[in-house]
Simulated scan of single mutants.
Amino acid sequence: MENQTLNRKLVNIKTPRGEQGFLGPDHIARAVVMNDFVNSDPFIILMDDFLDKKGGDPVGGPHPHAGFETVSLLLEGEVGDSAHMMKAGDFQMMTAGSGIVHTETIDRESKMRLLQMWLNLPKKDRWTTPRVQDLAFANVPRVYDNGLEIRVYSGTFAGATSPVQNHTPVVIADIQLRPGAKTTQKLHAAYNAFLYVIEGTVEVGEDRQVLNDGQIGWLDKHTEDVESDLILSAGSSGGRVILYAGLPQNDPIVSYGPFIADREEEIKDLYRDFRHGKIRHVSELPAGQRFSY
């Protein structure tokens, strides 16, 4: 007897609120994922940042990270400097690992929208050698089909595979559906997964539960080592949704400030290393630790 197909369904829908961000009154930050790592593993944080900076006074600055990966998808605008500028649709996965310093300074008028994820590393890779991977919008693998466009930034999804290398298996895809479009795609059943709608409305699963613009919907969890079906249908005006799906690591973490660790003592060591200048800046990484696709 064949195994019955697992059809993923929504089990938790939230509407995160925007708050003033750390870059000042022109910065609205929406905490999409935060403070529930036991259930969100391997996803630690997801922020949806809106910036409409009017003046030329610099904001932001250099800061360290260690013990995890930052995963950035720029939806609108530009961010960066002459050494590396991200434009709309670009993607970056920065493996902080054993420690890295990077600078996010904006010193001009700027309008942008950025999704930035903190992704947990497997315990065995917690202190891995840092690396940065940049995937340009023009080179993002795409799938087109009957009013559907899927851009695959990480992992394999809808028959397309991203060139980005993963420590933690993770699928990140931008799914855009025109009115009336519907799609069924395979997703590993053991992946913890959620959908975040950034435009329009999307209906999820056989029961067509509705997710509206600005809402996050978590899918049901499974432990079976099999494929599952993700069914998506567009709302009346179409919809655009970002899929995040990753393999839980099932190891507790300690989070403090810009660092993730396995034990509190490691956090103290990281702060000491940063104060003593032992954590290198991302601009100093050798070519073998920088990848552009």
Rank of each mutant, 00 (worst) to 15 (best):
N3L: 14
N3T: 11
Q4C: 00
L10C: 09
L10P: 03
N12T: 07
T15E: 14
T15L: 14
E19P: 00
L23Y: 08
L23K: 08
G24M: 08
P25H: 05
D26C: 04
H27P: 02
H27F: 01
I28D: 05
A29S: 12
A31E: 10
V33E: 03
P42L: 05
I45R: 13
L46V: 08
L46Y: 05
L46F: 05
D48F: 06
F50M: 11
F50Y: 14
K54P: 00
G61V: 09
G61L: 04
P62K: 03
P64N: 12
F68Y: 15
G80N: 07
D81Q: 06
D81C: 06
S82M: 07
A83K: 15
M85S: 08
M86W: 01
G89N: 07
D90L: 05
F91C: 04
F91A: 05
Q92W: 00
S98E: 12
V101F: 00
T103D: 15
D107C: 01
D107V: 06
K111Q: 14
K111C: 02
M112G: 02
R113K: 13
L114M: 14
L114R: 10
Q116R: 03
M117L: 15
L121Q: 04
P122C: 03
P122F: 02
K124M: 07
W127D: 15
P130V: 05
V132R: 14
Q133I: 06
P141K: 09
V143H: 09
D145T: 11
G147Q: 08
L148Y: 00
Y153D: 05
G155M: 04
A158C: 09
A160W: 12
T161Q: 12
P163K: 07
H167G: 00
A173G: 06
I175L: 13
L177W: 02
T184R: 14
H188T: 07
A189Q: 07
L195C: 08
G200V: 06
T201E: 15
V204Q: 10
V204W: 06
G205H: 09
G214K: 12
G217R: 11
W218V: 03
H222W: 08
H222G: 04
E227V: 01
L232S: 11
S233T: 14
S237G: 12
G239F: 04
G239D: 10
V241F: 04
I242C: 11
I242M: 13
A245S: 13
G257F: 03
R263P: 00
K268V: 12
L270N: 08
L270F: 15
K278D: 09
V282A: 12
S292Y: 10
S292P: 00
